[in-house]
Amino acid sequence: MTMQTTPRHDQILDCLLAGAMGDALGADIEFANLAEICARFPQGFADLPIQQGIQGTFTDDTQMTLFTAEGLVRAAVRSTLKRICYPPGVIHHALLRWLVTQGETPRAKVDDIGLVTDRRLNARRAPGLTCLDALRQARNFGEPAVNSSKGCGSIMRVAPIAFVAEDRVRDLAMECSALTHGHPTGQEAAGAWALILRFLADGADLEQAAATHAHSFGAETRDAILRGLQTPADGRPETTEQLGGGWIAEEALSIAIHACRCARDLEHGLAVAVTHSGDSDSTGAIAGNALGLMFPGQARVHRWAAQLECRDLIERMAEDLSLAMSGQMDDLVTRYPGA
């Protein structure tokens, strides 16, 4: 493995920005079939779509990713101040605050602090039913969901976890996936993707990162990684279509790996990731997180980043997550009271 050369803060920002760009790019075509997408965009994608009168709107994928990042920051602050912390519980609390932004009332009592106070996030954009239901039912922070779902909601929000201590990445991603998704494959796909992102951040190439972990998970996750690695990297939508719709975690994992292998640059990779009959916003978000790391700096200067809503929030959470993961707590202790 080669060593990272991009500063960690810039990597986190590239990862989160590119994920949000992929999410926003796919949001307008999530429920369209491939023929409809190709008819609407015969020359490809020029700009991020306008939805609800706002250009560059992202969905629950990016919303939940930001709340996951906030949970990680609060967990780091809590550990510093109180010397004891269970990060999945703190992240669960953050996700329950996201649930409030969706007009829901959690059973567990949640604090009115942080991202939840930014009313721009009070936007309900086809959130995953499994995530909604599992969070509605939660009574205690850190309590795993009781269901058998392996929907892609388990994997689409794990990117921030790639930047925690290396020996915690897999377990924490799986534990946080289990907060909403009870099926082992959903949890394993999340763990595998977080590890792949970490390897990319540390200097590995995509195929090396994926192949390294293919055989350390169960059969469904292993086979999904191998499909993503072995499918012809021709960039043709018909080829991506063979990997499924991305509605379930292992299909989303395959599509993300495939899109990254096809990518000539960030924009091309995002286009491959969303151009299929399926969950285009989620596959765009998931692949985007990796593409941001594969093409350092491109997300920060791309025209689509300038079109994103709430870019300031993404930049702030990238900054705070970078500080938290590097142990620079002085400012965070002040800005995250009650952690």
Results as ranks from 00 to 15, higher is better:
Thr2Tyr: 07
Thr6Gln: 06
Asp10Thr: 14
Leu13Pro: 03
Ala18Ile: 02
Ala24Gly: 10
Ala24Asp: 09
Leu25Arg: 03
Asp28Gln: 13
Ile29Arg: 02
Ile29Gly: 02
Glu30Val: 07
Leu34Tyr: 05
Ala35Leu: 12
Glu36His: 04
Ile37Glu: 02
Cys38Tyr: 04
Gln43Leu: 13
Leu48Gly: 09
Gln55Gly: 15
Gly56Thr: 13
Asp60Ile: 09
Gln63Lys: 14
Leu72Val: 12
Leu72Ile: 13
Ala76Met: 06
Tyr86Arg: 10
His92Tyr: 00
Ala94Asp: 00
Leu96Ser: 01
Pro106Phe: 00
Val116Met: 08
Leu121Gln: 01
Leu121Pro: 02
Leu121Tyr: 01
Leu121Phe: 04
Asn122Gln: 08
Ala123Glu: 12
Arg124Gly: 08
Gly128Ala: 01
Arg136Ala: 01
Arg136Trp: 06
Asn140Asp: 00
Gly151Thr: 13
Ala159Thr: 09
Pro160Asn: 06
Ala165Ser: 14
Glu166Arg: 06
Ala178Cys: 12
Leu179Val: 08
His183Pro: 11
Ala189Ile: 09
Ala194Arg: 08
Asp205Trp: 07
Thr212Lys: 10
Thr212Gln: 10
His213Arg: 12
Phe217Lys: 09
Arg222Gln: 15
Ile225Phe: 09
Arg227Trp: 11
Thr240Lys: 06
Leu243Val: 12
Gly246Ser: 12
Trp247Glu: 13
Ala249Pro: 06
Glu251Ile: 12
Ile255Thr: 01
Ala259Asn: 05
Ala263Ser: 14
Leu266Met: 11
Gly269Cys: 12
Val272Gly: 04
Ala273Gln: 02
Val274Leu: 04
Thr275Cys: 13
Gly278Lys: 03
Asp281Pro: 06
Gly284Tyr: 03
Ala287Thr: 02
Asn289Lys: 08
Leu291Gly: 04
Gly292Trp: 01
Phe295Trp: 04
Gly297Lys: 11
Glu309Lys: 12
Ile314Gly: 02
Gln328Lys: 15
Asp331Glu: 15
Asp331Gly: 13
Leu332Trp: 06
Arg335Cys: 09
Tyr336Ala: 03
Tyr336Gln: 06
